[in-house]
Write a protein that binds this DNA or RNA. Structure first.
Lengths: 118, 118
DNA sequence: AAGTTCCAACAACCTGACTTGATGGGAGAT
DNA sequence: ATCTCCCATCAAGTCAGGTTGTTGGAACTT
Protein backbone atom coordinates (compact mmCIF):
# COMPACT_ATOMS: atom_id res chain seq x y z
CA UNK A 1 0.00 0.00 0.00
CA UNK A 2 1.03 3.52 0.33
CA UNK A 3 0.60 6.59 2.49
CA UNK A 4 0.71 4.69 5.68
CA UNK A 5 3.26 2.86 7.74
CA UNK A 6 1.20 2.49 10.86
CA UNK A 7 -1.10 5.42 10.81
CA UNK A 8 -3.64 4.61 8.14
CA UNK A 9 -6.62 4.64 10.40
CA UNK A 10 -6.60 7.77 12.41
CA UNK A 11 -9.82 9.73 12.04
CA UNK A 12 -8.93 11.60 8.92
CA UNK A 13 -12.14 12.68 7.35
CA UNK A 14 -13.51 14.99 10.01
CA UNK A 15 -10.77 17.32 11.08
CA UNK A 16 -11.29 20.99 10.64
CA UNK A 17 -9.33 22.48 13.59
CA UNK A 18 -6.72 24.18 11.42
CA UNK A 19 -3.80 22.58 13.24
CA UNK A 20 -2.26 19.73 11.30
CA UNK A 21 0.13 17.37 13.11
CA UNK A 22 3.23 16.33 11.22
CA UNK A 23 2.04 12.76 10.77
CA UNK A 24 -1.11 13.94 9.09
CA UNK A 25 0.82 16.32 6.90
CA UNK A 26 3.09 13.50 5.90
CA UNK A 27 0.12 11.38 4.88
CA UNK A 28 -1.18 14.17 2.66
CA UNK A 29 2.23 14.83 1.13
CA UNK A 30 2.87 11.16 0.45
CA UNK A 31 -0.49 10.85 -1.23
CA UNK A 32 0.26 13.83 -3.44
CA UNK A 33 3.82 12.82 -4.29
CA UNK A 34 3.05 10.56 -7.22
CA UNK A 35 2.85 11.55 -10.88
CA UNK A 36 -0.34 9.65 -11.60
CA UNK A 37 -2.06 10.91 -8.48
CA UNK A 38 -1.09 14.45 -9.41
CA UNK A 39 -2.75 13.95 -12.79
CA UNK A 40 -5.85 12.78 -11.00
CA UNK A 41 -5.76 15.74 -8.66
CA UNK A 42 -5.38 18.18 -11.52
CA UNK A 43 -8.18 16.51 -13.46
CA UNK A 44 -10.38 16.96 -10.40
CA UNK A 45 -9.32 20.55 -9.88
CA UNK A 46 -11.95 21.53 -12.41
CA UNK A 47 -14.70 19.80 -10.47
CA UNK A 48 -16.24 16.45 -9.64
CA UNK A 49 -15.75 13.59 -12.12
CA UNK A 50 -16.83 9.99 -12.40
CA UNK A 51 -14.29 7.19 -12.46
CA UNK A 52 -15.02 5.97 -15.98
CA UNK A 53 -14.50 9.51 -17.14
CA UNK A 54 -11.11 9.74 -15.45
CA UNK A 55 -10.09 6.35 -16.76
CA UNK A 56 -10.51 7.36 -20.36
CA UNK A 57 -9.16 10.86 -19.98
CA UNK A 58 -5.99 9.77 -18.23
CA UNK A 59 -5.63 6.56 -20.24
CA UNK A 60 -5.14 4.39 -17.19
CA UNK A 61 -5.97 0.79 -16.48
CA UNK A 62 -9.09 0.65 -14.34
CA UNK A 63 -7.30 -1.25 -11.60
CA UNK A 64 -4.48 1.26 -11.54
CA UNK A 65 -6.73 4.27 -11.27
CA UNK A 66 -8.77 2.62 -8.57
CA UNK A 67 -5.62 1.99 -6.54
CA UNK A 68 -4.57 5.63 -6.69
CA UNK A 69 -8.05 6.93 -5.99
CA UNK A 70 -8.09 4.87 -2.84
CA UNK A 71 -4.79 6.33 -1.69
CA UNK A 72 -6.08 9.85 -2.23
CA UNK A 73 -9.39 9.05 -0.56
CA UNK A 74 -7.71 7.43 2.46
CA UNK A 75 -5.62 10.55 2.85
CA UNK A 76 -8.75 12.64 2.96
CA UNK A 77 -7.97 14.47 -0.25
CA UNK A 78 -10.91 13.02 -2.16
CA UNK A 79 -14.50 12.23 -1.33
CA UNK A 80 -16.53 9.69 -3.28
CA UNK A 81 -20.21 9.74 -4.11
CA UNK A 82 -22.09 6.73 -5.42
CA UNK A 83 -24.89 7.16 -7.91
CA UNK A 84 -26.30 4.14 -9.68
CA UNK A 85 -23.37 2.11 -10.85
CA UNK A 86 -21.14 5.13 -11.13
CA UNK A 87 -18.84 6.61 -8.57
CA UNK A 88 -17.95 10.27 -8.56
CA UNK A 89 -14.86 11.70 -6.94
CA UNK A 90 -14.35 15.22 -5.73
CA UNK A 91 -11.31 17.06 -4.46
CA UNK A 92 -11.65 18.21 -0.84
CA UNK A 93 -10.59 21.83 -0.52
CA UNK A 94 -10.39 21.55 3.29
CA UNK A 95 -7.56 19.05 3.02
CA UNK A 96 -5.65 21.33 0.70
CA UNK A 97 -6.28 24.26 2.98
CA UNK A 98 -4.97 22.39 6.02
CA UNK A 99 -1.82 21.54 4.14
CA UNK A 100 -1.44 25.18 3.15
CA UNK A 101 -1.71 26.16 6.78
CA UNK A 102 0.97 23.68 7.74
CA UNK A 103 3.28 25.09 5.08
CA UNK A 104 2.63 28.62 6.22
CA UNK A 105 3.58 27.74 9.77
CA UNK A 106 6.86 26.29 8.57
CA UNK A 107 7.76 29.41 6.66
CA UNK A 108 6.94 31.69 9.55
CA UNK A 109 10.30 31.88 11.26
CA UNK A 110 12.66 29.77 9.22
CA UNK A 111 15.02 32.58 8.31
CA UNK A 112 16.41 33.00 11.80
CA UNK A 113 20.24 32.89 11.57
CA UNK A 114 22.02 29.84 12.94
CA UNK A 115 23.50 29.75 16.44
CA UNK A 116 27.35 29.57 16.64
CA UNK A 117 27.37 25.75 16.35
CA UNK A 118 29.43 23.11 18.18
CA UNK B 1 18.25 8.89 -5.87
CA UNK B 2 14.97 10.50 -5.29
CA UNK B 3 12.86 13.44 -6.39
CA UNK B 4 13.70 13.05 -9.96
CA UNK B 5 12.81 10.67 -12.75
CA UNK B 6 14.15 12.77 -15.56
CA UNK B 7 13.70 16.30 -14.38
CA UNK B 8 16.39 16.78 -11.78
CA UNK B 9 18.14 19.61 -13.54
CA UNK B 10 15.65 22.22 -14.45
CA UNK B 11 16.56 25.64 -13.11
CA UNK B 12 15.03 25.28 -9.71
CA UNK B 13 16.71 27.77 -7.50
CA UNK B 14 15.71 31.04 -9.13
CA UNK B 15 12.02 30.93 -9.81
CA UNK B 16 9.84 33.50 -8.20
CA UNK B 17 7.06 33.97 -10.77
CA UNK B 18 4.30 32.56 -8.58
CA UNK B 19 3.19 30.01 -11.16
CA UNK B 20 4.35 26.51 -10.39
CA UNK B 21 4.14 23.85 -13.13
CA UNK B 22 2.92 20.43 -12.06
CA UNK B 23 6.33 18.83 -12.53
CA UNK B 24 7.89 21.29 -10.17
CA UNK B 25 5.16 20.83 -7.63
CA UNK B 26 5.69 17.11 -7.84
CA UNK B 27 9.37 17.52 -7.13
CA UNK B 28 8.61 19.56 -4.03
CA UNK B 29 5.97 17.14 -2.81
CA UNK B 30 8.17 14.12 -3.37
CA UNK B 31 10.97 15.76 -1.45
CA UNK B 32 8.63 16.50 1.44
CA UNK B 33 6.96 13.09 1.49
CA UNK B 34 9.47 11.31 3.69
CA UNK B 35 9.38 11.00 7.49
CA UNK B 36 13.04 11.81 7.98
CA UNK B 37 12.96 14.75 5.63
CA UNK B 38 9.92 16.08 7.44
CA UNK B 39 11.86 15.92 10.69
CA UNK B 40 14.63 17.87 9.04
CA UNK B 41 12.18 20.41 7.70
CA UNK B 42 10.58 20.87 11.08
CA UNK B 43 13.95 21.19 12.77
CA UNK B 44 14.79 23.93 10.29
CA UNK B 45 11.45 25.66 10.73
CA UNK B 46 12.94 27.40 13.76
CA UNK B 47 15.82 28.78 11.75
CA UNK B 48 19.14 27.96 10.15
CA UNK B 49 21.13 25.02 11.55
CA UNK B 50 24.48 23.38 10.90
CA UNK B 51 24.67 19.76 9.78
CA UNK B 52 26.51 18.47 12.84
CA UNK B 53 23.80 20.02 14.95
CA UNK B 54 21.04 18.31 12.99
CA UNK B 55 22.88 15.00 13.08
CA UNK B 56 22.94 14.89 16.85
CA UNK B 57 19.48 16.30 17.37
CA UNK B 58 17.79 13.87 15.00
CA UNK B 59 20.06 10.97 15.92
CA UNK B 60 20.85 10.12 12.30
CA UNK B 61 23.88 8.61 10.64
CA UNK B 62 25.86 11.34 8.93
CA UNK B 63 25.57 9.66 5.56
CA UNK B 64 21.84 9.31 5.93
CA UNK B 65 21.26 12.92 6.85
CA UNK B 66 23.49 14.10 4.04
CA UNK B 67 21.47 12.08 1.58
CA UNK B 68 18.20 13.64 2.67
CA UNK B 69 19.64 17.14 2.82
CA UNK B 70 20.70 16.76 -0.78
CA UNK B 71 17.22 15.72 -1.82
CA UNK B 72 15.72 18.74 -0.11
CA UNK B 73 18.37 21.05 -1.51
CA UNK B 74 17.94 19.74 -5.06
CA UNK B 75 14.23 20.38 -4.74
CA UNK B 76 14.94 23.98 -3.83
CA UNK B 77 13.51 23.65 -0.35
CA UNK B 78 16.85 24.19 1.38
CA UNK B 79 19.80 26.47 0.80
CA UNK B 80 23.25 25.67 2.12
CA UNK B 81 25.91 28.07 3.38
CA UNK B 82 29.51 27.06 3.95
CA UNK B 83 31.49 28.59 6.77
CA UNK B 84 34.84 27.10 7.66
CA UNK B 85 34.38 23.40 7.85
CA UNK B 86 30.74 23.69 8.77
CA UNK B 87 27.74 23.76 6.48
CA UNK B 88 24.54 25.50 7.48
CA UNK B 89 21.17 24.72 5.99
CA UNK B 90 18.18 26.99 5.84
CA UNK B 91 14.58 26.43 4.82
CA UNK B 92 13.55 28.47 1.79
CA UNK B 93 10.23 30.15 2.45
CA UNK B 94 9.79 31.00 -1.24
CA UNK B 95 9.60 27.30 -2.11
CA UNK B 96 6.96 26.74 0.53
CA UNK B 97 5.06 29.76 -0.67
CA UNK B 98 5.05 28.54 -4.25
CA UNK B 99 3.69 25.23 -3.14
CA UNK B 100 1.00 27.02 -1.17
CA UNK B 101 0.03 28.93 -4.27
CA UNK B 102 -0.23 25.73 -6.25
CA UNK B 103 -2.50 24.22 -3.62
CA UNK B 104 -4.67 27.30 -3.55
CA UNK B 105 -5.16 27.13 -7.31
CA UNK B 106 -6.28 23.53 -7.03
CA UNK B 107 -8.86 24.34 -4.42
CA UNK B 108 -10.25 27.27 -6.37
CA UNK B 109 -12.97 25.54 -8.36
CA UNK B 110 -12.86 21.91 -7.38
CA UNK B 111 -16.40 21.80 -5.99
CA UNK B 112 -18.09 22.13 -9.36
CA UNK B 113 -20.65 19.31 -9.68
CA UNK B 114 -19.90 16.50 -12.11
CA UNK B 115 -21.28 16.46 -15.67
CA UNK B 116 -23.88 13.70 -16.46
CA UNK B 117 -21.16 11.11 -17.25
CA UNK B 118 -21.02 8.48 -20.01
C1' DA C 1 53.68 17.63 8.11
C1' DA C 2 50.52 14.75 10.22
C1' DG C 3 46.24 14.36 12.57
C1' DT C 4 41.36 15.50 13.35
C1' DT C 5 36.73 17.03 12.33
C1' DC C 6 32.92 18.00 9.17
C1' DC C 7 30.63 16.79 5.25
C1' DA C 8 29.51 14.88 0.37
C1' DA C 9 29.43 10.98 -2.64
C1' DC C 10 29.65 6.31 -4.00
C1' DA C 11 28.32 1.08 -4.42
C1' DA C 12 25.68 -2.66 -2.83
C1' DC C 13 21.93 -4.17 -0.54
C1' DC C 14 16.96 -4.17 0.84
C1' DT C 15 12.40 -2.78 1.74
C1' DG C 16 8.08 -0.97 0.39
C1' DA C 17 5.27 1.26 -3.13
C1' DC C 18 3.52 0.69 -7.71
C1' DT C 19 2.02 -2.24 -11.66
C1' DT C 20 -0.35 -5.91 -13.82
C1' DG C 21 -3.82 -9.24 -14.56
C1' DA C 22 -7.53 -11.62 -12.65
C1' DT C 23 -11.64 -12.16 -9.58
C1' DG C 24 -15.96 -10.61 -7.57
C1' DG C 25 -19.72 -7.69 -6.14
C1' DG C 26 -23.33 -4.19 -7.09
C1' DA C 27 -26.59 -1.86 -10.26
C1' DG C 28 -28.96 -1.38 -14.32
C1' DA C 29 -30.65 -3.35 -18.92
C1' DT C 30 -32.83 -7.02 -21.75
C1' DA D 1 -32.73 -14.73 -14.61
C1' DT D 2 -29.12 -13.51 -17.32
C1' DC D 3 -26.12 -10.33 -19.20
C1' DT D 4 -23.36 -6.23 -19.21
C1' DC D 5 -21.07 -2.37 -17.33
C1' DC D 6 -18.69 0.09 -13.50
C1' DC D 7 -15.78 -0.29 -9.86
C1' DA D 8 -13.06 -2.32 -5.77
C1' DT D 9 -9.89 -5.74 -4.20
C1' DC D 10 -6.53 -9.24 -4.29
C1' DA D 11 -1.90 -11.84 -5.29
C1' DA D 12 2.30 -11.81 -7.56
C1' DG D 13 5.95 -9.53 -9.78
C1' DT D 14 8.81 -5.33 -10.64
C1' DC D 15 11.46 -1.54 -9.58
C1' DA D 16 12.66 2.96 -7.69
C1' DG D 17 13.95 5.05 -3.40
C1' DG D 18 16.19 4.53 1.15
C1' DT D 19 19.71 2.44 4.10
C1' DT D 20 24.32 1.16 5.37
C1' DG D 21 29.23 1.30 5.38
C1' DT D 22 33.03 3.17 3.26
C1' DT D 23 35.98 6.48 0.82
C1' DG D 24 37.73 11.02 0.00
C1' DG D 25 38.09 15.99 0.03
C1' DA D 26 38.21 20.46 2.50
C1' DA D 27 39.36 23.13 6.51
C1' DC D 28 41.29 23.75 10.89
C1' DT D 29 44.64 22.32 14.68
C1' DT D 30 49.00 20.84 16.65
Amino acid sequence: MVGLRGLERLPIQGELPGELPADRARLLLKALADPIRLEVIEALAGGERCVCDLTSELGLAQSKLSFHLKVLRDAGLLADRHSGRWVYYQLQPEALERLRGWLAALAASCTTPAPPCC
